[in-house]
């Protein structure tokens, strides 16, 4: 077992049935992710990339195949696979602090004292630079700040894998860039294993160690995996003219728009 990968998707298939019709979303998805690796999954909308993340998160049960995390089968949601949701999913009746504390109190209620839990909440809010807004409610802060709190909540659970479902999709370009830098910084400091769903090519190349490119559905699967051989820390300004960056970006674009162009229906 010592040679087993940290995280493994084994022959994952997913078929949704509703009424008499069934649609196959994923087929034969095989993927291994190492500890500390930052992996992005990219593909056109409808390719089942969010479904794949939800299977890892335990929110969906795959029709065929299994996911293994440190050798254990994943079959239910849990804080070891904390999710940063696309639309932040903060609870609007709790403060910024409360939204992180609800997770911390539950996940480490037995292992930490009350004071330690408070410190841990504040530490994670500090990490995303939201400590000064701790008493605000979600509707009093901007979209980018909400997503920061969503990230802090996920990080505070000390997950084995951090799952991010198009975390910056709903943000404007400047805020998105700022948050991407924050995530890179946090990843460099904490060395989390991250699986991120995205449809943004630049984001994928900038953040990832590897990019998993999905073919189009139905019955989508992994088309290609691209290793991004760029040294860290990465700075977006330097990368714009970097040959490896340009090559990777071109490779992803080529995959998405030349070989696996989305049929006209979604345009």
């Amino acid at each position: 077992m010592s040679t087993a990968p940290y995280l493994r998707f084994q022959q994952i298939g997913m078929t949704f049935s509703r009424g008499g019709t069934s649609s196959e979303v994923l087929r034969d998805v095989d993927l291994k992710i190492d500890r500390g690796e930052f992996v992005s999954v990219i593909g056109h909308s409808g390719c089942g990339k969010s479904t794949l993340l939800n299977i890892l998160g335990g929110l969906l049960k795959s029709t065929t195949g299994e996911v293994f995390l440190e050798g254990d089968v994943v079959d239910a949601p849990g804080p070891d696979r904390a999710i940063v949701f696309q639309n932040h999913s903060l609870l609007p009746w709790l403060t910024v602090y409360g939204n992180v504390a609800i997770a911390v109190d539950k996940v480490s209620g037995k292992t930490r004292s009350k004071a330690e839990r408070h410190d841990w909440v504040m530490h994670n809010l500090d990490l995303v630079q939201m400590a000064q807004a701790r008493d605000k409610r979600p509707n009093e802060v901007s979209g980018g700040m909400k997503q920061r709190v969503g990230i802090a909540r996920a990080l505070a659970m000390e997950p084995k894998v951090l799952l991010m479902d198009e975390p910056f999709g709903a943000l404007d370009a400047l805020t998105r860039a700022h948050l991407q830098d924050s995530v890179m910084d946090i990843h460099a400091r904490l060395g989390n294993t991250v699986m991120m769903i995205t449809h943004d090519v630049d984001e994928a190349v900038l953040l990832s160690d590897r990019i998993v490119m999905m073919t189009n559905g139905p019955a989508a699967t992994i088309g290609e995996v691209l290793a991004i051989d760029l040294p860290r820390p990465r700075r977006r300004l330097d990368l714009a003219t970097n040959a490896e960056y340009v090559r990777c970006r071109a490779a992803v674009l080529e995959f998405l728009y030349a070989r696996h162009r989305l049929p006209a229906r979604a345009a």
Binding site: G57, G58, L59, P77, G78, P79, R81, A82, I83, F85, N87, S89, L91, I102, A103, K106, V107, M157
Partner: peptide, 22 residues
């Protein structure tokens, strides 16, 4: 919203905690 239920599931809130807190 399904999101709130998902959050509760990830945190692993118990039946009672989901009722009171969500």
């Amino acid at each position: 919203p399904q999101d709130y239920r998902d959050v509760a599931a990830v945190i692993c809130l118990s039946w009672w905690e989901v009722f009171v807190k969500i």
